[in-house]
Amino acid sequence: MMLGDGAETEAIEAFVEQQFGGDAVIQLRSIRTGGDNNQKGGVYENFFAVAKICEIVASEDNLADFTLSAQEFSYVDDLCLRQRSNNTKTNYQAKNSSGDAARWTPTHAERFARQTVIDRDFHRVDTSNQVLVVSCPSMAEANRHKISQCGRASFRCEYFPYFPASVQLIFGEDTVRENLKVICGSDDVSTANAVFTLLLGVWHSAQAAARLDDLVRQARHISKPDLFLGLDPTPGPPPPWLTGLCSQYAGLELHIEAGRYVVTYRGLSIAMKVEIEAQMPAALATAQTLNQVLSYLMLQAAPELAN
């Protein structure tokens, strides 16, 4: 169902009023309004959303099975992750705070419980989880202890650090960096940051329920060059003409890196897509100098970079 769908909102309100009373509807509406006003929370929430995208993209084969949405009409509304194959819905409330805003209280317990009922009986999911995400590790630990006393295995608290910039997040949170390494096929931090930025951009544009395979497809479409080659099968061996070319010039070497054929010469690294001609291109066959060869190879990247 789409975010902002008026019919669904009304239906949820009717359900909530029936289940919990009119005050519960007022409470639900106030949660939605609060979500619109919190700009600082936006950075934290969006970085968490993209980190969650990276986690799933790096570890799951069937990305179409996952849908992510933000600010649904919900008691736990910052992020909602659905997995279709097992009919699971996980809702996240993100709090960039080490103070009271992030502290587990009976209000959280009540909201989490109500959302569980809505997920089960209105959205008809088999499994509903509610997660409080906080930016303070000691607060997360204290919250976990309190939650354990609720006796609800489907409630939990997670720690996710706040950083104001993606570069800082990548340097500061190993899990995010490891997931980006899988996606990029490289541990180069400039590439990792570019991928994170691309995913953040498509996430910003989505902001409604988005399938993860669609998000990745959109990000790859605007990635020039394609920085997501860690998601593709390992390239096969280069064509014989390319290995033969490299053997013609002392110091000209070839290896596979981050899903590309990379030709190196005395410090120069030229990266090429692996979809290249099976036979030596005519323009290379007539090249008479190493300079001409290198220029030709460099130019092979151009089509991928076109607007």
């Binding site: 400039s190 590439t191 951009g201 544009s205 605007i222 060059p225 005395r266 410090g267 120069l268 990247a301």
Partner: peptide, 25 residues
């Protein structure tokens, strides 16, 4: 560095396409 610098809806990026790193850098 040979960067490909272009705009996105949330800023711009400039991924490295090719690079020259003088040995010993």
């Amino acid at each position: 560095f040979w960067n490909n610098h272009y705009p996105l809806n949330n800023g711009s990026i400039a991924p490295v396409v090719h690079r020259y790193l003088q040995p010993g850098y």
